[in-house]
Amino acid sequence: MNDGTSSPGTRVLGALTLIGMAVLLAFALVISPADETQEETVRMFYVHVPTALVAFGAFFLTVAASVGYLLRRSEGWDVMAGASAEVGAVLLAATLVSGMLWGRVTWGVYWTWDARLTLTALLFVLVLGYLAVRRLPLERERRSRLAAVVGLLLGPATVACHYATTWWRTLHQGPTITTADAKMDGTMLFTFFLGMVVFGLLYVWLLVHRFRVLWLEHRVEDLGLDEAIAERRREAVGVS
C-alpha cells in the first residue's frame, strides 16, 4: 500500500474527481445547449472560468501559507505554499490555453493586449519565478525564507489580476455569473457550477499529492547527499 503519495483519503478524492470530470464532460460537451451568441464556444467556458478561479484561489493560498511560514517558520506552511503554487500554475496554464483558443474563435486572434490578458500572463511569469526560487540550490531554511517573501509578493499581482475586468473597462468579459444570471439557461448554470466543483476537487486532490511529494523531497534531502546522487543516477537511467 505504501508505495507512493496516495492514501485511502486521496483515493476516494481521486475517484470522486474522475467521476465528476466524466459527468462534467458529458454536461459540457453533450447535454448543455449551445449559447445564442457564443454558439458552441460557450463549452470552453466550463473549463476556462473554473480553472481561472481555482488558480486564483490557489495563489491566495500560496500567499496565505507564505505569511504563515514567515510567522511560524514551520515546514508545513512552506510546503503548502509551494504545492499550491505548482497546482495553480498548471491550472493557470489551462486558463491561458483555453482563453487563447476561445479568443481565436471569438475575436479572431489568439491574443489581444487588454488588461486582463496582460496581467494574467504576468501573473503566470511571476509564478514561474516563484517556482524557480523554490528550486534554488540553497540550504533549506534560507530557501524557504526567500520563497516565502516571493510568495507573499504574488499577492498584489493576484488581486490586480482578479479584479482587472472590474477596474479597467476591457475587451475581456466581466464576471458573467454575478452580473447576468438571467442570460444563462439553467443547464448551463448547473454545468458551470459543476465545473467549479470538479476543478476544485481536482485542485485539492493534486494539492495533497504535491504536498506529499514536496514533503518527501525534504525528507530525501535530509537523508544526505550520497543517497541523493545515487537517486539522481537512477532517475537519469530511468528517463533515457
Partner: peptide, 27 residues
Amino acid sequence: SVYGILAAGLRVRETLLPLLLLPVLAP
C-alpha cells in the same frame, strides 16, 4: 531593492533577478 537583496549572494543572481523583477515592474 526587495528583489535585489533577495537575489544578492546567490550564484544565479544575474539570471534570477530579471526573471523575478521584470514581471513585477511591468505595471
